[in-house]
Design a protein around this nucleic acid. Structure first.
Lengths: 347, 347
DNA sequence: TATATTTACGCAAACGTTGCCGGAATCGTA
DNA sequence: TACGATTCCGGCAACGTTTGCGTAAATATA
């Protein structure tokens, strides 16, 4: 099945003019008489002519589209970021190609291959959890492809970055648990490759230190696939529950890990916050409906998207090579609900 | 900032050959000697040559990409469908452009304009709630653009369609409530323009009839924006709560409406299922974590995506015009949890 | 009236790629 | 030796669009 659309040639032929005249008339050039312009415009409207963006792209060497790579669009945080990106992109005539890496290196590689073989003008990316070799992204960056990182950034590559103040978020969340009389606080983190994992862990450790509590390595667990695999979260939770001195509270350092852990604890019939206080990263609106209502560290996702998109468009449209790169760090929002309130405070 | 990539011309010039020779060598034509092929392939690999998809698209008059239009990607149902679509598309070398209409006619129109001005080979769409004029889609279809509808289909346009058996889903959900001794069952539906709204309402009405219960129009409320506006859901709920004989159970006929209504009832302190039994469409995994655990009608979203994508690829790759269109109706999954069990059955 | 200027349009190249056609060089055969 | 067949490669056009340049006709100027 084919889908043929009208071209500038069709108009030229029908009106006995040249393609250049038609092209200029449609762009309202002063070189074309008003009479001819009107004829051309009317005919173009009649046959519903639309310029072929593919031809334009080939000629202009730009596609007016930007690529976005996230690990999973079903993740509320990412879909909110995408909404932010789209709001800016559309306003500036750019269109957005959304892709998901599913935390897989291979898939990420495929996507980058596709996106960058000249089909996008720039890239907004939160790298996959599995990835630890960034030479490919590095190369693209060196070749001049405008890139903006958000959330999971690559420290070695110098370009604009938009993140949440992860350190402070976790520092405050951990502090909150400690002030609520929880004594033994464990964390389940994402892959240690990720910048967010390191920043968030640092916040946890600093909070413990500031409360003069020694860091117990056995209370720090990792999920290498960011919680995308149920089993890895189960293993982490199991391990924590089995430690001689079982933790009485949990800080969950990634969206997916938070909901999975919550679900596992519930299934096990573990009382929250009675047996286990819980707080974790999550951007879903639904956490307030959970039983018990879940305390969360939520990120200003939409704003992160708008910032990232603005920075990218700057990069794309700047004539000269940019060297002054920004790191935007936005404050997280900590929402305390029942799951992290020490039982005694319970109504 | 510019991003220049290697072309076939660069290779030709560097090796003192013509572009046609290079092109043929890279496509392994029998007309080129092995020696030359090797030289060309080695050099291409060295400079990391990738064919320019834009140029290919212009020449081949196809883009190897398909457009997907949903109302909101943050909606779990849609993100699952998208996952299904992508799984098939990638396997066949197609790439997927995801867009969201946000239930707005204007936005949907913009998107269609963009997508169809030759930048996609086909379209998978669930129409926006606001739309009731489908002449535009109709035109595209007539012009030969391959289209597959899913979820919210347009009855007047004859092409492949993939839906859930909405009638049966609601029929059984309503029946379940009735068998659980709920007496006065109300529904909150999506915009009446939508096929899903009509099908789902029909299931509700048939269930009542089969239980010899008269249909009370005051128990049927609509949200014209599919629940995207919080106020419209609030109004619907308020109205139902204020009716002289307040309903004792609710069937929610759209994903977004389900979670919004649940949230509103909770905020009002209305006991579920004690004061109000609740069941509704929703594809989120989180509903089991709600308080009370929420009964849902969930759709085989991933499978809907794979089916829709397969049908679309068939359409795109078939030489002759297809006239034998399929309507795939997949069974929904009804998950009964606490929110819809008559209180007496409660543990 | 002859020349200069303006107006209004066409021609052709270019973006990167493919495929048809044509042709030089080499080989085989009589 | 002469001829056709084969091997291997280059030239050119085309996809749809924009743009610099060229130019005929129309108008203005002297």
């Amino acid at each position: 099945m084919k889908f043929e659309a009208a071209t500038i040639k069709d108009i030229a032929k029908a009106l006995g003019l040249s393609t250049s005249t038609v092209s200029r008339a449609l762009r309202d050039s002063y070189e074309i008489s008003e009479a001819t312009k009107k004829k051309i415009r009317d005919y173009a409207a009649a046959i519903n002519y639309r310029p072929n963006p593919v031809a334009l792209s080939l000629k202009e060497k730009r596609t007016l589209s930007i690529g976005v790579v996230v690990s999973e669009i079903a993740n509320t945080f990412f879909s909110q970021v995408i909404n932010g990106i789209e709001s800016i992109a559309y306003k500036n005539g750019y269109n957005v190609i959304i892709t998901q890496s599913k935390e897989s290196v291979e898939r990420e590689q495929m996507i980058l291959d596709y996106l960058t073989s000249r089909s996008v003008d720039g890239l907004i990316i939160s790298v996959s959890a599995e990835t630890n070799d960034f030479s490919n992204l590095e190369q693209l960056h060196k070749k001049g492809l405008p890139i903006v990182f958000f959330d999971r950034v690559v420290e070695g590559i110098h370009t604009h970055k938009v993140i949440t103040d992860n350190f402070t978020g976790v520092y405050r969340a951990t502090g909150h648990l400690l002030e609520n009389k929880f004594k033994r606080i464990a964390v389940i983190a994402n892959n240690v490759n990720l910048s967010i994992t390191r920043d968030r862990l640092a916040g946890y450790i600093k909070a413990l230190e500031d409360h003069a509590i020694p860091v117990d390595e056995s209370l720090i667990k990792y999920c290498d696939h960011g919680g995308l695999l149920v089993e890895e979260v189960e293993q982490a939770v199991e391990a924590l529950l089995k430690t001689k001195k079982r933790p009485d509270a949990l800080v969950l350092l990634a969206d997916k890990i938070t909901t999975e852990t919550f679900s596992i604890l519930k299934k096990k019939g573990i009382n929250m916050p009675g047996e286990m206080g819980v707080i974790g990263f999550n951007n879903s609106k639904y956490t307030s409906l959970f039983d018990p209502a879940l305390s969360v560290i939520s990120q200003p996702a939409f704003e992160m998207g708008t910032k990232a998109a603005s920075l990218l468009l700057n990069l794309i449209e700047s004539k000269r090579t940019v060297t002054d790169y920004k790191l935007e760090s936005l404050p997280p929002d900590i929402v305390i609900r029942k799951s992290s309130r020490f039982p005694i405070d319970d109504q």
